[in-house]
Design a binder for these strands. Structure first.
Lengths: 351, 351
DNA sequence: GTGAAAGCGCTAACAA
DNA sequence: TTGTTAGCGCTTTCAC
């Protein structure tokens, strides 16, 4: 028969009781000390911290979450971690979250509803205190799971009628108008748009803003100059080819994201078309890499830091101050044009 | 005086007791059913699952972890999530982990020991069951934290004398030898190497393998042809410039990673040097993007999927089967040459 | 095969 | 200011 040997502490991490015993105080005092409660005398506090250091103790977050009901975990779901835009975004989000004592759970949905559902489920199981859904589309079906459980939520470009949900609006309009203005000023009249997949809200919004900006600039859009791509490099290559087959070709292309623009750059090079002399190209996102394309990409910057900060702020408010009715429910993230080397006057200046 | 109102279940998620009550069984039976214990009759099991579905119940992982001592969380620490190599790696690791019922915690150390220490600390607090340290260097100082707590560990290119630690060895030798052989066969004699930062184990190993491969091919290395860069695109640009200032310039450059090679491609283009006619360039990693550089990059492939799988496998073995003494402690991940468009015979074939 | 009951490590209410 | 104690939601003996 095997008797449980309770005294063998070796190998087992120290717990709050171990600390209390060593510091000769109650476990409540240890808990208070750790959580910075002002109601602990300095004398005891010192003893506790000393014991903590000696034992290299730290609290078990699971026990903490269980009893306090707060996990201090935030979820972030992105569309596709393989698109450089998202790692940069995650990086920022993590930094801010960690600085505020939160842990993050990352998932990519890959624009697949089933995968998204599984992400949401896993986050629910881990009792996240909020989720940033930066998938830019297809959220609706699974979001109920979150709102039903009363989880704070922040969505990009999607307003949800729920008291716990906030929205981040991206002001593409400013950036896109600046881009069209920039091209028009250079003399471009025939401007095409390589759109993102229509299942993404962001893609639709960007396309609409393109149309509006063209109209505002008094420029006509040919139907065939707007092509739906998929926000990947390959998609950009395909979109470019489609444009080149047209009878009247555009002299400039605005792309729904940088990866598409990079695809265009590549395809143009392969066909011997020089950018920007023969064709101007503008991207959107300003991923780190945009600075290093050949030629360096003129693009519309969408700050990942700003976006990450807005997302975190929205969640933190809902999580830490759920009662406050006058919380900010909408956040606006701006865009701006960054002119680099992929735009110039068209070879045959338009008339 | 406020009395606690226990009956108000609205808003509160259902717990195991709610399920037990609805299914008219004990909570033990619910627990057994969920965990697939064979000792539950089909009759009750059905009732339980029905109740679970009706309530949309799922277990609280914190409570589960607390009592079972198993968190089902794995940590992965990478060097820099901004280098495309790592998101691809994380993606694979997550897929495998999730498929096996684990959650993952991601952190990037940014090659900063203090940041690494904080990552490790956070992972410890969350009671991870294992950590994959894919930082390729600088791990030693903080790893004690993990080994002292008896956490399974898997390191890239670093053998740790600890029963819980495994190592993933990357067989650069094969790939690098193939690359040098490929260049030599094309007629190159003057081959330079743009190394990674020496603080990374991987950088050192790759450089050594380059030297060995050159010697094996009977090729001399000029001291100035080996330049330490930093595995970034910018670093590649700088490295290229340094090489171009030399009296006798190399006709081919092997780079310690793809980002460096992309920098070289860019710098060469800026200076009007044609790749591969005037200069051959070889990368290492084969990130997704390598296929789309101009020209498409010849590179040494290091499979992220294979690496992720090895890392997961190592951790799973240690976590789930800690007693087994004949566990695999070392894993080898292979590399192979992928010939694309950035290599060709030198303009003035060496003689 | 099933249930009752003892905790997992911690926080928070209450007592002193 | 400090300590005692009742759980948080679950798994896991141990009886039946």
């Amino acid at each position: 028969m095997v008797r449980k040997v309770k005294s063998r502490t070796a190998g087992k991490p120290p717990d709050i009781r171990t600390v209390a015993a060593l510091a000769k105080v109650s476990i409540a005092t240890v808990s208070r000390t750790i959580n910075g409660s002002p109601a602990v005398s300095e004398r005891l506090s010192k003893r506790v911290w000393l014991a903590i250091e000696q034992l290299k103790y730290f609290p078990n977050t699971h026990a903490r979450s269980l009893v306090s009901g707060r996990s201090r975990i935030l979820g972030i779901i992105v569309e596709n971690i393989t698109n450089p835009f998202f790692p940069e975004l995650i990086q920022s989000f993590e930094e801010i979250a960690v600085a505020h004592g939160y842990e993050i759970l990352v998932s990519s949905s890959n624009s697949d509803t089933a995968v998204l559902a599984s992400c949401v489920r896993r986050m629910l199981e881990r009792k996240v205190e909020g989720v940033a859904v930066l998938t830019f589309g297809q959220e609706e079906p699974v979001l109920d799971q979150l709102t039903h459980r009363n989880i704070p939520l922040v969505l990009a470009e999607f307003r949800l009628d729920d008291p716990k949900a906030s929205t981040i609006l991206l002001d593409y309009t400013t950036g896109i108008q600046a881009a069209i203005h920039h091209l028009a000023e250079l003399g471009h009249r025939k401007i095409a748009f390589l759109a993102g997949p229509h299942k993404l809200h962001s893609a639709i919004t960007r396309e609409n803003d393109f149309r509006a900006a063209m109209e505002a600039a008094g420029l006509a859009i040919q139907k065939k100059w707007v092509v739906e791509c998929d926000h990947t490099l390959k998609g950009g290559v395909a979109g470019y080819r489609q444009l080149q087959e047209l009878a009247t070709r555009p002299t400039a292309i605005l792309c729904s994201n940088d990866m598409t623009a990079i695809g265009v750059l590549r395809a143009a090079y392969m066909e011997g078309l020089r950018v920007p002399q023969d064709l101007s190209v503008v991207g959107l996102d300003d991923i780190d890499f945009a600075e290093f394309t050949l030629p360096p990409l003129t693009t519309i910057r969408l700050s990942r830091t700003e976006l990450a900060r807005a997302a975190f702020e929205a969640l933190r408010q809902q999580a830490e101050d759920p009662g406050n009715p006058k919380k900010q429910r909408e956040f606006l993230v701006s865009t701006s044009l960054v002119v680099r080397g992929s735009t110039a006057a068209p070879a045959t200046a338009a008339r």
